[in-house]
């Protein structure tokens, strides 16, 4: 069953469309990559689901269904409660996502206490358990530490633990490893995959890196200019990308085992082609 379904989502800033008829779904236990370059709208989709869109962005039409609940149909108050209980975020930058002036422990347990109504003691137990699960040595000590006392990899582990704490149906990971060294990135990606598989969570993995997609995702959605260009399984994608832009993106991705064939710039003709598609789409939908 699908934990997240987005149907024909349109959003704009002023008169400028930023999401164009976006549809996608993430099944229970599935990891779906949301791939695109800057400005493609990949983070916007994550924010639309979590209800954290910037105020300038207006959702025009479309449905976001989270574990059976149509979010647009709910009152803002109920919507926040549903999202808080059913979805969670693994953010990009572990340093800015943690409050620097507060100890780590309460930052994990607050969600459980505030949203799910657990007691502090239960929440504390659960947090320690989770920190252990994400291979943090001496969880009790780490929970009393401040974020700056921990390494980047350690902080990201804490945020992963925190995301899984309330057993959400859906986790959105927004470029969770871009700020990390490759060796740490590898550990963190494996950890996210393990945790996701163990908990059966649906995972929407926002990234610009097709290398990362090939290591963690089962399916992917390729975006450009807020429009879905391709929606496919990874096996299919890496064997035969279904859209010229996808193919160009794959050829532009660095690959040290094949230095001459990789890092090929995306041809102008491909970009022009996608832009024409977007224009055609906007004309059909009554935008200028």
């Amino acid at each position: 069953m699908s934990f997240l379904t987005i149907e024909n989502l349109n959003a704009r800033v002023g008169t400028a469309p930023i999401l164009r008829d976006v549809s996608l779904s993430v099944e229970a236990g599935e990891v779906r990559g949301l791939v695109g370059e800057s400005g493609a709208g990949k983070s916007m989709i994550g924010k639309a689901v979590l209800g954290t869109l910037p105020t300038a962005v207006e959702i025009e039409s479309g449905r976001i269904v989270l574990d059976g609940e149509d979010l647009q149909a709910l009152k803002p108050r109920d919507r926040r409660r549903v999202i808080g209980a059913k979805a969670a975020l693994i953010p990009q930058d572990p340093l800015t996502a943690l409050n620097p002036s507060r100890r780590v422990g309460p930052q994990i347990t607050n969600r459980l206490v505030d949203i799910l109504g657990w007691t502090r003691a239960d929440a504390g137990h659960r947090a320690a358990e989770l920190l252990d699960e994400v291979s943090i040595p001496d969880p009790e000590r780490v929970m009393r530490a401040y974020p700056h006392e921990l390494s980047g990899g350690m902080r990201q582990r804490i945020l992963i633990a925190s995301a899984f704490a309330a057993e959400p149906k859906l986790i959105i990971a927004d470029e969770p490893t871009t700020a990390l060294d490759v060796t740490v990135q590898k550990q963190i990606l494996r950890l996210i995959r393990q945790m996701q598989a163990r908990h059966g969570t649906a995972l929407l993995f926002v990234t610009h890196d097709l290398g990362v997609v090939s290591k963690v995702c089962q399916s992917l959605t390729v975006l450009f200019g807020g429009m879905v260009l391709e929606d496919t399984r990874v096996e299919q994608f890496f064997a035969r990308p279904g859209h010229p832009y996808s193919a160009a993106l794959l050829a532009a991705t660095p690959k040290y085992t094949d230095p001459d064939a990789s890092l090929t710039p995306v041809p102008d003709a491909v970009i022009a082609g996608v832009e024409a598609e977007i224009e055609a789409h906007d004309r059909m939908h009554g935008h200028v």
Partner: peptide
């Protein structure tokens, strides 16, 4: 250096790069 890394650390770095294909399995 890429074809036959001598140092353990170099090998670790190389192994950690996610290549955009499904042949490389972690």
């Amino acid at each position: 250096l890429f074809e036959a890394p001598e140092a353990e650390y170099t090998r670790e770095l190389l192994d950690a790069i996610p290549l955009p294909d499904l042949e490389q399995v972690w």
